[in-house]
C-alpha cells in the first residue's frame, strides 16, 4: 500500500534486504493469527463464559512479535517517517551523507544499547524460567522476551545494508 520511494539497486544490499523481508513477511502472519485469537476469545467469553487469561496474553504476544520484526522490515522498505521539509530538496549526494552519518552516530549506538542490555534481560528470564504473573497465564516468558535481541540484530543488519547501499552510491557518484 505505501508507495515507497524506490532506492537505487545495489546487489549486496539488495540481497540482505530480501533476506530480511522474507523473515518479516513470514512473521507478519502473526497478525492473521491475532485476528483469529481475538475472535476465539470473544466467542469463548460471550458464548461459553470462559474467557481465558492465556488467550488474552497470547494476543499481545502475537502483536509484540509483529511489531518487533516489523522494525527491520520497515527499514528495508524505507518506510520510517522523516520530516522532509528540507530533506526533499537536498541533492542525492547530501542525502547519502546524511544517511550514513545518521546511521553511524544516532542509530547504531541506540541499537547497541538495546541489544546488549536485552541479552541480560532475556538471560534473567531464562534463568528463573519466568512465567506470566497471572497463575493461569502463559509460561516461557523468555521466549517472547528474546524477540528483543533477535529483532534488534535484524534491525542492525538492515542498517548495515543501508550503509552499504548509500556508501556504494556515494562512491559511484550517482545523481
Amino acid at each position: 500500500m505505501t508507495e515507497i520511494e524506490k532506492l537505487p539497486s545495489v546487489p549486496l544490499a539488495d540481497g540482505i534486504d530480501r533476506f530480511i523481508q522474507r523473515i518479516g513477511l513470514t512473521v507478519a502472519w502473526a497478525y492473521v493469527a491475532l485476528v483469529l485469537v481475538i475472535i476465539l476469545q470473544v466467542v469463548l467469553r460471550k458464548g461459553f463464559a470462559s474467557g481465558l487469561i492465556a488467550l488474552e496474553e497470547l494476543q499481545w504476544h502475537l502483536y509484540a512479535v509483529g511489531v518487533m520484526f516489523g522494525l527491520s522490515y520497515a527499514q528495508t522498505t524505507n518506510s520510517h517517517i522523516r520530516v522532509d521539509l528540507f530533506y526533499s530538496s537536498f541533492r542525492a549526494k547530501t542525502k547519502h551523507v546524511i544517511e550514513i552519518l545518521g546511521i553511524l552516530i544516532l542509530v547504531m549506538p541506540f541499537i547497541a544499547i538495546v541489544f546488549f542490555h536485552s541479552l541480560d534481560f532475556v538471560a534473567d528470564s531464562w534463568r528463573i524460567n519466568e512465567h506470566s504473573s497471572a497463575p493461569s497465564g502463559l509460561g516461557w516468558r523468555w521466549l517472547i522476551k528474546s524477540t528483543i535481541p533477535i529483532s534488534f540484530a535484524l534491525l542492525a543488519l538492515a542498517m548495515v545494508s543501508r550503509l552499504i547501499r548509500d556508501f556504494t552510491l556515494l562512491m559511484r557518484g550517482d545523481a
Binding site: I81, R82, L85, F86, S88, F90, K95, L106, F110
Partner: peptide, 13 residues
C-alpha cells in the same frame, strides 16, 4: 529532525 533522518532514530539516538 530537519536533516530528514527518520524521527524514530533521531529520538533514540
Amino acid at each position: 529532525l530537519f536533516t530528514g533522518i527518520p524521527v524514530a532514530w533521531v529520538l533514540g539516538g
